[in-house]
Design a protein around this nucleic acid. Structure first.
Lengths: 225, 225
DNA sequence: TCATCAAGTAACCGTTTAGTTACCGGCTTG
DNA sequence: CAAGCCGGTAACTAAACGGTTACTTGATGA
């Protein structure tokens, strides 16, 4: 039973006595918690993630988690923000404007697909956040700035392509990005139900390669004159 | 405090005495639980959904829920199965083979988009199930049969289009379906984060109409000769 | 060299949760 | 017409949960 001992409610002398060796490396501990939290939230969602599990995965305990991040919700937001910073930073390094418009778009499509493939935790976090209608992301000020750059750069590439006569006039930067992201996101984040209902292993290399080609094909076909 | 009274652990005479009027309508109760569960699971995911909340939403209590569905997991699987049956049944009624190949594909794209738009709970359930790597869907035998029909019918439409010379030879039924579903799913299920980061209200009617047109355009552009 | 304070531990707390038990009462049927 | 079954209620339980408290440890600089 829970209530054994009969001393409930009465404070007793405790003996915390450190049994594990203390790390004494705040930066490492903080990073370990953040990484463990990323995995836990990605695997179980906000509702399913367990604070105890995060602490254990990080090789520390709950006290430190609350010490560094406040509470579960703030830790979750931090995880989400870092995930966005990760993809947008890598994306910026592409400089899609340096090539021909067609190559620029292909490059962006390939990059996005491969990033999604390499970072399933990012897709999962997006799913979780949307389940909650962006409840936590909305609170984040720093994230909103990160994205105007992407649309701006993509817009320039499309304009150049229109001038050169290779892209249709109606091509819209937001639509193009959403198309690329859609095709990657759906295939990967829904791979488990899709593989089950269609009886095919979508994550098999041959199928992955076919879909990668398909994404580039569809994206270009939708904007080429 | 929780523990007031001092009678913990000792079984006492209870007085359940029916205070609400009993419904005495098993079919209605069952359906009410299923509908309430659909909403609760869609809004909160598997980990976040609360059995008490489902019972309350259904206007009944937990006992009935366990009586009809066994436990939380079996109830969840039932909800998921019903959601799939819903979309596949409506889809079948389209008979996309009755029109020209191009119209058939447009029809399927429009139907899928509008069904997703009308049934956000279906998208949400898919997301939740994939978070758990189709853990529950895999157990379902009845679902796997439902989907071969869709691919078969789509395959016929594509073949007809190829014969008529309007579709490219490489068009693949699974890829076409995944393309249509991708574009609808991503836009709608990620509308909250997307609206936040891009600073646009994606669910606004004008934007919805533009995306509907875009889906049809992209789908056809990707397979037209 | 020793007081201080950040880093760290583990037990603890109050509440919530999935699931169970004890009991009720009206309809059907032998 | 009574017996029993089925649909129903609400209180209960053990375990799990997010979050806190009491206390320890080791590096540092006055």
């Amino acid at each position: 039973m829970n209530d054994s001992g009969g001393n409930r409610g009465k404070k007793q002398a405790r003996r915390p006595s450190t049994e594990r060796t203390a790390q004494r490396d705040p930066e490492r501990t903080r990073a370990a918690i953040l990484e463990a939290a990323t995995r836990e939230f990605a695997e179980n969602g906000m509702g399913g993630a367990r604070v105890d599990a995060i602490a254990e995965r990080a090789g520390t305990n709950k006290r430190m988690l609350y010490h560094y991040f406040g509470d579960k919700e703030q830790l979750y937001l931090k995880v989400l923000e870092e995930a966005y910073v990760g993809i947008r930073t890598a994306e910026r390094a592409l400089h899609i404007g340096d090539r021909s418009p067609e190559d620029g778009i292909s490059e962006l499509a390939l990059f996005t697909w491969r990033y999604f493939l390499k970072h399933p935790e990012f897709l999962s976090l997006l799913g979780t956040e949307n389940l909650h209608r962006a409840r936590w992301l909305r609170q984040s000020v720093r994230l909103k700035e990160l994205h105007s750059h992407l649309i701006g750069e993509l817009s320039q590439v499309l304009e150049q392509g229109k001038k050169q006569g290779v892209f249709i006039e109606t091509a819209d930067p937001l639509h193009v990005y959403l198309t690329i992201a859609s095709l990657g996101y759906f295939y990967l984040s829904n791979q488990y139900t899709l593989s089950t209902i269609f009886g095919r292993d979508l994550i098999e290399p041959a199928n992955l390669n076919a879909w990668e080609k398909h994404i580039v094909h569809v994206t270009l076909a939708s904007i080429k004159r």
